[in-house]
Write a protein that binds this DNA or RNA. Structure first.
Length: 152
DNA sequence: GCCAACGTTGGC
DNA sequence: GCCAACGTTGGC
């Protein structure tokens, strides 16, 4: 992350977006239960520059909503960043990065995509505005809204 | 540097 | 299984 634009009055994403994120995973490939089983995982394979930018902005301790795509289509749990961005070993070009995540807790009940879409308060959520984005920031307000919808 | 073709993601 | 959205690639 070194070498980004200089200038103290240059607002960068990591200054603006606090510490909440959402990641997608197909549970058939890697579910939240798999994360619990493994205890920790390398979140690699992201090949989209917008998503990679979000990975780079993550800090250790940031909380992450864990969303199941394809099957379930719901936010099921909270995970946390255990290691900040480092080069993704699975990327031959060396341009993309990975982070490491650890499990935190399952939500009392999952929050479905349909429920999120139906809630006007979440209309500006990055993941709703750009459906294919696999890593996205979540505002503090949206974070609180989703946890409440989940019964916390 | 533009743009058409193509591939991938992910909801429906 | 289909299709929309969107990113990437490659020809020019």
């Amino acid at each position: 992350m070194a070498g980004t634009k200089a200038g103290h009055d240059d607002l960068r994403e990591e200054d603006l977006v606090a510490s909440h994120w959402l990641v997608k995973s197909e549970p058939a490939t890697f579910s939240y239960d798999d994360l619990v089983r493994d205890g920790r995982t390398v979140w690699d394979g992201v090949r989209n520059h917008a998503a990679a930018g979000h990975l780079k902005a993550m800090k250790v301790g940031d909380q992450v909503l864990f969303y199941h795509s394809q099957e379930g289509k719901d936010v099921v749990a909270v995970a946390q960043v255990a290691r900040e961005a480092f080069p993704d070993a699975s990327d031959p070009t060396g341009k993309f990065v990975a982070v490491e995540l650890t499990p935190v807790r399952k939500l009392p009940r999952s929050v479905t995509l349909a429920q999120m879409k139906a809630n006007p308060a979440l209309a500006d959520m990055a993941m709703l505005r750009q459906g294919r984005l696999s890593v996205s920031p979540v505002s503090d307000a949206d974070w609180a809204t989703i946890l409440k919808m989940a019964g916390e």
